[in-house]
Design a protein around this nucleic acid. Structure first.
Length: 461
DNA sequence: TTCGATGATTAAAG
DNA sequence: CTTTAATCATCGAA
C-alpha cells in the first residue's frame, strides 16, 4: 500500500518529467516550455494534477515509452547526479549499518512449543510428539487411541491449516520481495538506489512478514493449548464402570484372592466381558488390590458376597468339600503342594471344579492368608505347619470359595469370633510384608489349634 | 455441599 | 515393561 503510493508517485514524476521534457511524444507540446525556465510555471497546476490522476488510466506501454523517453533525455545524467548528491547530503544511504537480527525470544518460544506439540515438527505419520505420547499411553494399540483419535484428528487439522497458511505466507513474501526488488532495480535507473538499500528493503519486508507469521504461530499455539486442555479435561473425566462390569471384575478378584493378578490373556478376556480396555482392567485390579489390602475389613462383606456367589455355582462339590473339612478335623490338609504355576490363567469355572475335586484337602486352613498388620498371628500361623494345601493352580479359587462357604456355615452354626468384619471372609494370602504372597509357594497355615472358631481363626484377631 | 467410592495418573521400585 | 502406593479429580448419594 505504501509501496503503491510510491509507485504512483514515481510514475507521476516520470510522466510529468516526460511531459515537460519531451511532451511531443504523447501530448501536444504545451509550447514554450523548454526554452525559458520560468515558462514552466505557467503550467496550470490543475493540469498537473489531472495528469497525476489519470496516470493509472494510461496504458503500460505508454508508461514504458515515457520512461524510456526520460531515460534517454539528455538532462537525465545530470539529474541523476544531482539526486545522488542530495541523497549523500541527507545521509539517507547510510543507514544499513544496523544489521540487527535478534532472534525474537517470543518467536523462539512459539517455535519450540509448536515443535513440541508436533505441529511444526517433521511430517505427519504420527511423528508428532503428542501423537507419540498418546500412542505410548495406550500401549500403541487401539486401546485409548480411540479416545485420543478425536484429539489427534483435531491436532492434524490444526497442523494442516498451519502449514497451508505458512506456505501461503512464505509464497506471498517471496513474491512481494521479488516484486519490490524488480521495482527498485527498475527505479535505480532513475534515482540512486544502492544494493544495500534494496537489501534493507527486503529485510523490512521479511520482518513484516515474519511478524504476520508470528501471529499465525501464536494463533496456532492458542488453538493447540485449548485443544490440549479440553483433551486433558476429557481424559480426567471419569465414568464409573457398569454394574455388570464391576461384578465381573469383583468375581474374578475374589475368586483369585490369593493371587489377584490376572494374566494378560485374562485381562483381555475381562476387558472384553466388561466392555472396557485392558489398561482399565489393570487399573481396576491395581486399585482393588491396594484398597483391599489397605482395609480388608471394609471388603469383608463384598468378599463374602462374591465368593458365595461364585461358590453357589460350584455347589455340590464344594459343599462336599466343606462337609469334609468340617468332619475331618483341620489337621491334615495338603494335596496340591505340587503346583508351581500360578492360577492366573485359570478361569473361574475351571478352578471351581478343580477346587472341588482336588482341593478338599484343607479344612480350616485357608492357606496363605494373613493380615498385613498382624505379625503375631502370622507368626503363629507360620509356626503351625508349612505343609498345607494351596499352591496348586487352582488353589486360590478353591480356597476362597471353600473358605467362604465354610464361614457361612460357621456363621449359621453360631460361630463367631466376635470380630465382626474379620469373622467372615478372611484376607489370606497376604504376607506380612503386605504383599500377596506368591501362589506358588505353598504357604500354609492351617489353623488346627483353635476350637469352634478354628475355621476362620487365622484371621481373627 | 459434603464425603466416601472409584477410575485415572504418577513416581518409584523391581 | 508391571506393580505399588500415593494422589488427583470426579461421581453419586446423603
Amino acid at each position: 500500500m505504501d509501496e503503491q503510493a510510491r509507485i504512483m508517485q514515481t510514475l507521476a514524476g516520470v510522466s510529468l518529467a516526460c511531459h515537460s521534457v519531451q511532451g511531443g511524444m504523447a501530448l501536444p507540446p504545451p509550447h514554450g516550455h523548454e526554452g525559458a525556465d520560468g515558462d514552466g510555471r505557467k503550467q496550470d497546476i490543475g493540469d498537473i494534477l489531472h495528469q497525476i490522476m489519470t496516470i493509472t488510466d494510461q496504458s503500460l506501454d505508454e508508461a514504458q515509452a515515457k520512461k524510456h523517453g526520460l531515460n534517454c533525455h539528455r538532462m537525465k545524467p545530470a539529474l541523476f547526479s544531482v539526486l545522488c548528491e542530495i541523497k549523500e547530503k541527507t545521509g539517507l544511504s547510510i543507514r544499513g549499518a544496523q544489521e540487527e537480527d535478534p532472534p525474537d525470544p517470543q518467536l523462539m518460544r512459539l517455535d519450540n512449543m509448536l515443535l513440541a506439540e508436533g505441529v511444526s515438527g517433521p511430517e505427519k505419520g504420527g511423528g508428532s510428539a503428542a501423537a507419540a505420547a498418546a500412542a505410548a499411553a495406550s500401549g500403541g494399540a487401539s486401546d485409548n487411541s480411540i479416545e485420543h483419535s478425536d484429539y489427534r484428528a483435531k491436532l492434524t487439522q490444526i497442523r494442516q491449516i498451519y502449514h497451508t497458511e505458512l506456505e501461503k505466507y512464505e509464497q506471498a513474501c517471496n513474491e512481494f520481495t521479488t516484486h519490490v526488488m524488480n521495482l527498485l532495480r527498475e527505479q535505480s535507473r532513475t534515482r540512486p538506489i544502492s544494493p544495500k538499500e534494496i537489501e534493507r528493503m527486503v529485510g523490512i519486508i521479511h520482518r513484516k512478514f515474519s511478524s504476520i507469521q508470528m501471529q499465525l504461530k501464536q494463533s496456532t499455539c492458542e488453538a493447540v493449548m485449548i485443544l490440549r486442555s479440553r483433551f486433558l479435561d476429557a481424559r480426567r473425566k471419569r465414568r464409573n464402570f457398569s454394574k455388570q462390569a464391576t461384578e465381573v471384575l469383583n468375581e474374578y478378584f475374589y475368586s483369585h484372592l490369593s493371587n489377584p493378578y490376572p494374566s494378560e490373556e485374562a485381562k483381555e478376556e475381562l476387558a472384553k466381558k466388561c466392555s472396557i480396555t485392558v489398561s482399565q482392567v489393570s487399573n481396576w485390579f491395581g486399585n482393588k488390590r491396594i484398597r483391599y489390602k489397605k482395609n480388608i475389613g471394609k471388603f469383608q462383606e463384598e468378599a463374602n458376597l462374591y465368593a458365595a456367589k461364585t461358590a453357589v455355582t460350584a455347589t455340590h462339590a464344594v459343599a462336599a468339600a466343606i462337609q469334609n473339612s468340617q468332619t475331618n478335623s483341620p489337621t491334615t490338609p495338603n494335596s496340591g503342594t505340587h503346583s508351581s504355576h500360578r492360577d492366573r490363567i485359570s478361569t473361574n469355572s475351571l478352578s471351581l471344579c478343580d477346587s472341588a475335586t482336588s482341593n478338599l484337602s484343607f479344612p480350616g486352613s485357608t492357606g496363605s492368608f494373613n493380615l498385613p498388620n498382624s505379625g503375631d498371628m502370622f507368626m503363629s500361623m507360620q509356626s503351625l505347619n508349612g505343609d498345607s494345601y494351596q499352591g496348586s493352580q487352582v488353589g486360590a479359587n478353591v480356597q476362597s470359595q471353600v473358605d467362604t462357604l465354610r464361614h457361612v456355615i460357621n456363621q449359621t452354626a453360631g460361630y463367631s469370633d466376635g470380630l465382626g468384619a474379620n469373622s467372615l471372609y478372611s484376607p489370606h494370602s497376604l504376607n506380612t510384608n503386605g504383599g500377596w504372597q506368591d501362589a506358588t509357594t505353598p504357604s500354609s497355615v492351617t489353623s488346627p489349634t483353635e476350637g469352634p472358631g478354628s475355621v476362620h481363626s487365622d484371621t481373627s484377631n
